[in-house]
Design a protein around this nucleic acid. Structure first.
Length: 999
RNA sequence: GCCCGGGUGGUGGAAUGGCAGACACUCAGGACUUAAAAUCCUGUGACCAGAAAUGGUCGUGCGGGUUCGACUCCCGCCCCGGGCACCA
């Protein structure tokens, strides 16, 4: 036999799997289902990186294992191909994004197939395919067609809302007339206020550099996440999705999910539930009421001033609700006015607003000292009629709560700082101790006991809150309120490469959805898709596409539009939406399309959906990167819940169990720093704020400064052999007083530490790459790449191959087959009596280890502990290496267990040793079963402790009774010696594990 | 600042109340070879004693506690990674 050569066998098996559709998924009601899903990739121009195969191998192992255990397995793959990078690349190179996408997808597909993943390729989907985005548009129309019924906490068809208005069961909001008295336009406007997809003028993150608006999540530190361009706030009419309506259900749904605690916590923080009260403050000498949200209604007696966000409508100078008076009240302190603009309140407020608007997000975050101005107006505290000044300050955010707060400096750090800055009173209303009025240093933010608060004096904070809310509600001064931090989802983008919105704008300013038969609304094939440079989206260049005539069908309120040729009687002019959907749209529901990917009647056939998603509910295992913790995963859950409410899916949640694979870092690096003069500097002296550049020799250099002197320093990589460890530090061997920085970095082009999976496959084969990525450590952990480590698993596969086929020089076949009560060589040759005896001895010797191996690998796959399963297989293989002859059954078991991890070599060995008896694929053989009784050795060595210290061991039969074990322990001469002259107080036997004696 | 996760040999890691360091990498020695590579065998936590076999002591970030027994559970601290952050 030739040596193990992955190149020659891997491609062969990949072809066989593909041609014979070995891994096709089917609805099979006789079998339980298992849906194992990968986060589908964005097919970038870079190709696959080593992070992709990590999660994809893990899911592939589970998919292959579950098939072997008799499950009907769904394991699909596709492409999340709309999005900014393709568009940016297209603009740069002047190629159409569709062409780039096609090219990238075929590269990605080829790479994934070269890794031998068991996807059902007939289910491949692509979010940019009109036959796919047709249904993305269809679901958008369902969102548009749904309103959220608070009383049922459920999304319902908009027609049912219309019926409620029409029958008079529900009053038309903000309108005295009856529903039937309103014209079609007005009816559409009213309904638009309820739809889950609606338009609003919102301050958007406009990014001039990208020529588009961005979602809040795509803006980091005032810069775009992609490209790092500056972002400014501008008002714009945008499509929004009412995800806030589902805040409560999105939060509560988390409890039912098998997700990591940290991931759930990220979603909980993002949704941001807080409980408290809405309190109404009368603005002094004016008609307006100022509402504030507080989580500490129990501190209401401690309010000493109020604060409005700079963007709050009550301080929009010149507007009718503006509360800023014409002149300062008498004796306003000079410090309460804005320096340089202190003539009248309006000038101070405007000057302050202008100053705030000019501050970057970064400046605000770095400088948390308190600034603000007095509005010149007072509010009246409803509980004690006290007049308190109203300030404007940027420490209050317009986007949270009502954009206004009641300030209680004694019990809030921020209010405390502000009060000190502006000389405002600080009044204690909580004491840390029940028996003292003034316990605990101010500001006291922790719970305590109410003081100086007539309605609730003496109550513990936890009781004082509901008591105060009760009082407020009775007197109509406020009400209990749960507030969520999450905001509605900004759903439109001024981009070309995304799904067009399936609706039209009518001349009266309202919108009408396209009739379902009009879908897909194809993206026009624009030659010029570049940004316009203004806020007008690229699609504004598609005039013929955008300007259409439509017929409106159905009742005026819920009419749908059908595009007709110009001149059609009854048609009206309409303009298509020029924005496109954000990249998240296609990934919100792709897991459903895989189930029925070629259906042109529905997004997914009902019974098919039910088979894969109902029992157990949702995707059974979803693996992907943690970078999608709050965006994709929250948006998907939201869409899924809407589809659930509307009866299109059968589970409440899309992804029941979710695992994040850990990042793979570059190979460990040792960096030593030196000054320009070449003087070494210890890592402890280096400012840890680093940047990278290409050095003069082409190798990357790290730039920093001396922590104390500020002198520029350069860090250069050191060979591992020049480094040694002293205590907790790594130092240069040549200069042990110089500490170096030892760690692994995220892979990046600029650092030059990127590992390309194609190279690894070319050198070691897909099986070794898969095996190594699983062997590195726990799936969820961050791990550094190690080329030496890949060689380790590569050696393991070589050793396995040699155990079965011998070496090139020595083809001695070691595999023997049992034939009744005798043994023969696998190639049919007879065996000598001595070989017969050795064969039987080997079989006896391997029996128990084999059962233990089956148990170990099975249990480890179930708990996704792939690294330990691999080490168990290595151990078993090492056992085989030492034997002169190897029973075929042991090899078969090993390759069967190995198949999910290293499928190509497993197929090849199976095929070669099974001969004519072979099935088409080793994956068709059921998973081996183990006998628990054969997993333990017949005899075992029991360690004996005396006073917790290991003092000897005895050998007993595995099933020996406690009494018997203790007897042989006490009979042991070594133990007797150690016990001599001591008084034995207690004997403990842990079955099969340990004996503990106490003297 | 708040929340979550983690800290075990030279390295990646194993062991979740019962023999710490499985498996692998690295390194060293040996076998095979004209030689090298590959392969195989042996050793490889630290310290002490011994010519050696071997024996002993210490050891899972630090300090305390629970237990016959703690890497594992509890309390306090230190450090690293991640998330959120003037969220009322």
């Amino acid at each position: 036999m030739p040596q193990y050569n992955p190149r020659s066998i891997e491609e062969k098996w990949q072809q066989i799997w593909l041609q014979n559709k070995v891994f096709a998924s089917h609805v099979d009601t006789a079998k339980p289902k298992f849906y194992v899903l990968d986060m589908f990739p964005y097919p970038s121009g870079e190709g696959l990186h080593v992070g992709h195969p990590e999660g994809y191998t893990a899911s592939d192992i589970v998919a292959r294992y579950k098939r072997a255990r008799g499950f009907s397995v769904m394991h699909p793959m596709g492409w999340d191909a709309f999005g900014l990078p393709a568009e940016q690349y297209a603009i740069k190179t002047d190629t159409h994004p569709a062409a780039t996408t096609r090219k990238n997808v075929s590269r990605f597909r080829g790479q994934l197939q070269s890794l031998g993943f068991s996807y059902d390729w007939d289910r491949e989907i692509n979010t940019t395919d009109p036959e796919y985005y047709r249904w993305t548009q269809w679901i958008f129309l369902k969102l548009y067609d749904t309103w959220f019924d608070e009383s049922r906490s459920q999304g319902r068809p908009i027609s049912e809302l219309e019926a409620e208005f029409a029958s008079g069961r529900r009053a038309v909001p903000g309108c005295k007339q009856a529903w039937c008295e309103l014209d079609g336009r007005r009816q559409r406007e009213v309904l638009a206020g309820f739809r889950l997809a609606y338009q609003a003028d919102v301050a958007v993150n406009w990014c001039p550099g990208l020529g588009t608006v961005l979602a809040n999540e795509e803006v980091i530190d005032g810069k775009s996440e992609v490209g790092g361009y500056p972002v400014e706030r501008r008002p714009m009419r945008q499509w929004m999705l009412r995800i806030t309506a589902y805040a409560k259900r999105l939060l509560e749904g988390l409890d039912s999910l098998e997700w990591s605690e940290s991931l759930k916590m990220m979603q909980r923080n993002w949704i941001g539930r807080s409980e408290g009260a809405l309190v109404h403050f009368q603005v002094a000498d004016r008609p307006e009421i100022l509402d504030v949200f507080t989580t500490r209604p129990d501190t209401l007696y401690g309010v000493s001033y109020m604060v409005l966000a700079p963007e709050h409508p009550m301080v929009h100078i010149g507007q009718k609700d503006c509360i800023v008076p014409a002149a300062w009240p008498e004796s306003t302190p000079a410090a309460w006015k804005f320096a340089g603009s202190e003539e009248i309140p309006a000038s101070s407020v405007m000057a302050y607003q202008k100053w705030v608007a000019g501050r970057s997000e970064r400046q605000r975050q770095e400088d948390v000292s308190k600034t603000g101005v007095f509005t010149g107006t007072y509010a009246v505290n409803p509980v004690n009629q006290q007049r308190v000044p109203i300030f404007v300050s940027d420490y209050v955010m317009m986007g949270y709560g009502t954009g206004a707060i009641m300030a209680v400096p004694a019990h809030d750090r921020r209010d405390f700082d502000f009060a000190r800055q502006f000389g405002l009173s600080i009044k204690r209303v909580v004491s840390a101790r029940k028996d003292l009025l003034e316990a605990g240093e101010l500001p006291l933010e922790e719970a305590g006991y109410a003081v100086n608060s007539p309605w609730i004096d003496g109550m513990a904070t936890e009781q004082a809150k509901p008591a105060m809310i009760g009082q407020l509600e009775n007197r109509q001064m406020g009400l209990g309120r749960t507030h969520y931090k999450i905001r509605d989802w900004l759903f439109s983008r001024q981009r070309y490469w995304g799904e067009p919105f399936p609706l039209v704008h009518l001349e009266d300013g309202t919108t009408a959805p396209l009739a379902p038969e009009e879908l897909p609304l194809r993206l026009p094939d624009l030659a010029d898709f570049k940004p316009t440079g203004t806020m007008a989206p690229p699609l504004s260049k598609a005039g013929d596409w955008a300007n259409v005539r439509v017929l409106l069908e159905g009742s005026p309120a819920t009419a749908v539009a059908r595009v007709v040729p110009p001149g059609t009687p009854g048609s009206v002019p309409a303009r298509r939406e020029l924005n496109t959907m954000p990249q998240w749209a296609g990934s919100c529901w792709y897991y459903l399309r895989y189930l029925d990917p070629r259906n042109d009647q529905v997004f997914c056939q009902r019974d098919t959906e039910r088979y894969w998603m109902e029992q157990p509910p949702g995707v059974d295992l979803y693996i992907g990167g943690v970078e999608h913790a709050v965006l994709h995963l929250l948006y998907s859950r939201f869409w899924h819940k809407v589809l659930f409410d509307r009866g299109y899916v059968s589970s409440q949640e899309p992804f029941r169990k979710l695992v994040n694979q850990g990042l793979i870092l570059g190979e460990a690096e040792y960096t030593a720093y030196s000054t320009a003069a070449g003087e070494w500097v210890s890592w402890g002296e280096v400012d840890p704020d680093l940047s990278t550049r290409a050095g003069s020799d082409g190798r990357p250099e790290i730039i920093s400064r001396h922590r104390r002197t500020g002198e520029p320093l350069v860090g250069r990589g050191q060979a591992a052999g020049d480094i040694e460890k002293r205590g907790n530090q790594y130092v240069l061997k040549s200069r042990p007083d110089i500490e170096v920085d030892a760690r692994s970095y995220k892979m990046s082009k600029s650092r030059g530490n990127v590992i390309n999976p194609d190279d690894a496959i070319a050198k070691y084969g897909a099986d070794s790459l898969r095996l190594f990525e699983m062997f590195m450590g726990p799936l969820e952990q961050v791990k550094p790449w190690s080329t030496a480590g890949v060689e380790g698993v590569y050696r393991f596969l070589h050793r396995l191959w040699r155990n079965v086929f011998g070496t090139e020089e020595d083809h001695r076949q070691r595999v023997v087959v049992q034939d009744g009560s005798s043994w023969r060589a696998l190639d049919g040759g007879g065996l000598t009596a001595d070989q017969q005896r050795k064969s039987q001895a080997a079989a006896d010797e391997l029996l128990r280890p084999m059962h233990r191996l089956i148990r170990k690998v099975t249990q480890d796959i179930e708990r996704l502990s792939f690294n330990t399963a691999i080490s168990a297989m290595m151990e078993f293989n090492n056992l085989l290496t030492r034997l002169e002859v190897i029973p075929c059954a042991a090899v078969l078991t090993l390759v069967r267990l190995l198949e999910p991890y290293a499928p190509h070599i497993a197929e090849e060995i199976y095929q070669q040793i099974s001969g004519a008896a072979a099935l088409g694929s080793v994956s068709r053989i059921p998973w081996p079963v183990y006998d628990e009784a054969l997993c333990v050795e017949a005899r075992c060595d029991i360690p004996v402790q005396i006073n917790g210290k290991l003092s000897g061991r005895v050998s007993v039969p595995a099933d020996a009774a406690e009494e018997h074990v203790l007897q042989s322990v006490l009979a042991d001469t070594e133990i007797q010696e150690k016990l001599a002259g001591r008084n034995l107080k207690k004997k403990i036997y842990v079955k099969g594990r340990m004996v503990s004696l106490v003297v």
